[in-house]
């Protein structure tokens, strides 16, 4: 009895400590999306000024995999992420739609794309941020992979780097394309 009084709490304690130790350094600020496996929300966004094609849910239900990337000209990591979006658009072989999130001035988004290049199949403008909320966006940039039925299959929070692109996003897209 006395042995167990000594040992059980210590074992419990060691288990707790183990959990804490293994979780240290893992970022806890990323909140997995509540929308994984759910159909992408209904939306329809106008095009950027001077362009003719916006995006809507209909674009995502064409029977093929697609990607929605949430970006904004005021968002610093978006700039860092941009080359990866270009690679994604070139290598994945699926349409990459841009969701231009909460620009103060609609022209900002156009200028940004003019400066850095435009990898997007089409870009929709979300001035109010309402579509962003429907997608569960809480910090730009965020990237969604949508399967052929228009269901959200994967969500990446934060900027994409080369490693995430090669090891996470592209394999995921390939897998979805196979069906």
């Amino acid at each position: 009895m006395r042995f167990w009084i000594a040992v059980i709490p210590l074992v419990l304690f060691a288990a707790l400590a183990g959990i804490f130790l293994t979780n240290i350094g893992k970022d806890q600020s990323v909140i997995p999306s509540a929308l994984i496996g759910k159909p992408a929300p209904e939306f329809s966004l106008p095009p950027l000024p001077g362009r003719d094609k916006g995006i809507s849910r209909a674009d995502l239900t064409q029977g093929h995999v697609s990607v929605v990337n949430v970006f904004a000209s005021w968002c610093v990591p978006c700039r860092a992420e941009h080359p990866m979006i270009k690679r994604l658009a070139a290598e994945a072989g699926v349409p990459v739609y841009g969701l231009n999130y909460k620009e103060k001035d609609p022209q900002d988004g156009v200028n940004w794309l003019d400066e850095l290049g435009d990898p997007y199949t089409a870009v929709g403008m979300d001035i109010s941020g309402r579509t962003g909320i429907d997608f569960g966006v809480y910090g730009v940039p965020e990237t969604f992979i949508i399967d052929g039925d228009g269901k959200i299959a994967y969500k990446q929070v934060g900027p994409i780097d080369a490693e995430t692109l090669e090891n996470v996003l592209l394999p995921k897209i390939r897998e979805l394309k196979k069906g």
Partner: peptide
């Protein structure tokens, strides 16, 4: 964290004893 575990586990051992 490790220091804490070390201290507290040792102390608990002495206590249970």
């Amino acid at each position: 964290l490790i220091g804490f575990c070390f201290l507290f586990a040792g102390a608990y051992y002495l206590f249970s004893r």
